[in-house]
Nucleic acid binder design. Structure first.
Lengths: 246, 246
DNA sequence: CGCTTGCAGCTTGCATGCAAGTGTGCAAGC
DNA sequence: GCTTGCACACTTGCATGCAAGCTGCAAGCG
């Protein structure tokens, strides 16, 4: 029994837990996170049917939080609820991936451009960000050597997030979080194999360089190339797994 | 008693209701739509506290669908749920409006550009779209004369939607739908007064013209100007209602 | 043998009961 | 008059019970 409920912090472990700063830890959030992870990492096979009761029993909670998580996931198009039948794990759809790619590209290019424009090496906020980025890139070089492609992917997300955080746009950030689910799901089809990791890291370095020089043009152009590369990489995966996509 | 439940279609009024095409009419969707409308149109005052029970009783449903609607609205930042106290209607925040504006501009410019590139007057899909647009613009001219600013706003949304539909990107469309809530809320502060309606319509005509000529550059530029105009218009409202914003 | 029909077992949608946390007002004591 | 503590009313989070719909299968009929 993999009880998600047991991960819930006790309400008052000794004193107040600053209720307004902590986002709100509720069971449906935990269930949602867990299910989302399973869908994105393809633990739940695309097209398979899952039921609220089954998930609820497995996670050790009642149907209520599971139901709420299902609703949320269906809003993100990761689940399709069939009224009296169950919930269908979203199929891998090339069309949907392309839509997600389009949205991501549009938003990231705008955001990265803003960051490049505003970058100020004298400001401690940017110094802190630069430290984090350098750290991420160094670690990422390591994952190529050790062939740890899962860690590579997570660091990739981290790199983009540090820069997007600088843009200070919570709405944009949350939208990108949403579309990434559809994009990353494709990656998990071939996670154990090598692809274009070094190429991706080179792209990251170039982007960082352009941002540090406040070169908006070059930042957006390098990002465009970087995303284009990832797109072609996905095209290869499409080709190799054509039978899975609808 | 304004019963939302009574608007629910009977499950089987005489035959099958094509269960898969109809999106899924559930109570929580109806409650969600109703509450969202009230928040956007400022019927619920920003900063006020509402409770699930109160809403449930007023709408004639139980707490469950209301609870689900609250959760959904809190994801869109239109409601902030305070654990054992109630739900706070989101304050009008200049920062948030600017974030929404940034996202909208980024997405719409990309989408309109795509549509301009793909526009094909020989294709019936585009002919149909053109008919709709012309119809909308004509109606909109009428609302300026009759000073029906509510209808004007709705037609404004309709114009943008027809073009966005042509882009065929459901994810993008749903994101724009989300951010529009934050942008339109500002409009409702002064809905009964005249602003720059004619200017906005002129912008629409210019955009349509550029799209029809497949002129991507001019389309995005005109749209940028159009949105810029709306932005300045919002700035004026900010200035006149500074005390409401946080 | 093929077709229909009804039933059983599943599913989700919604209502409701219970528990736990928060704020408020009043009363008692200083 | 002021402070302090407590009880109560009210909130949401979650579990559970009930109703209604969908699917598949088996029995019965032509």
């Amino acid at each position: 029994m993999n009880s998600v409920a047991s991960q819930m912090p006790k309400r008052r472990p000794g004193g107040k837990v600053t209720p307004l700063l902590v986002p709100r830890t509720t069971l449906d959030t935990l269930v949602y996170d867990e299910l989302r992870k399973r869908i994105v990492t393809l633990v739940y096979r695309p097209g398979s049917l899952i039921s609220e009761v089954a998930v609820a029993e497995e996670l050790g909670v009642s149907r209520t939080p599971v139901h709420q998580a299902f609703l949320q996931l269906s809003h993100e198009d990761l689940l399709q609820i069939l009224p009296q039948r169950g919930a269908l794990v979203a199929e891998l759809s090339i069309a949907k991936v392309k839509q997600a790619q389009f949205v991501r590209e549009s938003l990231e290019i705008s955001a990265f451009g803003e960051v490049a424009k505003a970058w100020n090496a004298a400001d401690p906020v940017y110094q802190e960000a630069e430290r984090k980025i350098l750290d991420i890139l160094r670690q990422q070089e390591g994952t190529v050597v050790s062939r740890d492609y899962l860690a590579f992917t997570q660091l990739d997300v981290a790199f983009h997030n540090v820069i997007l955080d600088l843009a200070g746009n919570a709405i944009l950030l949350s939208f990108i979080h949403d579309v990434r689910a559809h994009l990353n799901r494709v990656r998990y089809l071939e996670l154990q194999e090598a692809h274009h990791e070094q190429e991706a890291i080179d792209g990251h370095w170039k982007i960082l360089d352009a941002i540090r020089k406040n070169d908006v043009e070059r930042t957006t152009e390098e990002l465009r190339l970087h995303l284009k590369m990832l797109e072609e990489f996905r095209e290869e995966i499409f080709a190799r797994h054509r039978e899975i996509f609808v």
